[in-house]
């Protein structure tokens, strides 16, 4: 279907364009030469294959997940996950937890997934250098310096607004509690819960004693 083909074509074009902007990506891509990473993202039924050579080819897979895994070759790795946990995959420390929770399923050669992850996560693109090709060094440098300054100023303004709103809510209007007060309240709640549990245990014990007598 052309719509699906348009999606894979756009993705392929985008990935290869990004890789081309990082001169060091060629070495990382070479490690994946001849391998394929198959990706299924729930709730989508059809998966995608990333076939690695001197570039990345993106193909729509013919079969559903179980049939694809049954046909898995030695140079392939199949990943099945959900769209909402995609962001967590970048944290390697979370992978075991995700697998245990069933939010991530990996079949085949795990190294392919690791190398592919490294290929994209290690992308280091000098955007200023890229812009300078079209505008010249001076304009590119000034644009990026201006953008960095604007970002810093914006963050400063956001911090001030945050502090001001927080102060107004806590001190002036007393609509929200101070952080320390919330922590103290939480501690008090914990203590009360412990007391109730202790009392409950004591009652149970007394009930048993009464029954025995």
């Amino acid at each position: 279907m052309p719509a699906q083909s348009l999606l894979t074509a756009t993705l392929e074009q985008g990935l290869n364009r990004l890789l081309a902007l990082d001169p060091d990506s060629a070495d990382r891509l070479a490690k994946l030469h001849g391998y394929r990473l198959l990706v299924f993202l729930e709730p989508f039924r059809r998966g995608l294959a990333l076939a690695f050579s001197d570039k990345v080819d993106v193909l729509a897979l013919e079969h559903e997940h179980s049939a694809t895994v049954a046909r898995l070759g030695s140079n392939e790795c199949c990943i099945k996950t959900r769209l909402d946990v995609l962001g967590e995959l970048s944290q390697t420390s979370q992978l075991t937890r995700l697998i245990q929770q069933g939010a991530l399923q990996v079949d085949g050669e795990l190294q392919i997934a690791q190398h592919a992850s490294n290929l994209f996560q290690s992308l280091d693109i000098d955007w200023e250098e890229q812009l300078s090709r079209y505008t010249g060094d001076v304009v590119a440098h000034q644009t990026f310096a201006l953008a960095a300054h604007a970002k810093e100023s914006l963050l400063g303004v956001l911090d001030r607004i945050n502090a001001g709103v927080g102060n107004a809510l806590v001190e002036e209007k007393t609509l929200a509690a101070h952080r320390l007060a919330v922590m103290h309240f939480s501690d008090e709640v914990d203590r009360l819960r412990d007391d109730v549990e202790r009392l409950d245990a004591r009652f149970s014990q007394l009930q048993k004693q009464l029954k025995n007598t």
């Binding site: 348009l6 074509a9 193909l59 897979l61």
Partner: peptide
């Protein structure tokens, strides 16, 4: 340009492997 998408769909249906 749609012929490129028709050809891409053909490749998707090819099941071609290394």
């Amino acid at each position: 340009g749609i012929h490129r998408l028709w050809k891409r769909y053909t490749i998707d249906c090819s099941g071609v492997r290394a």
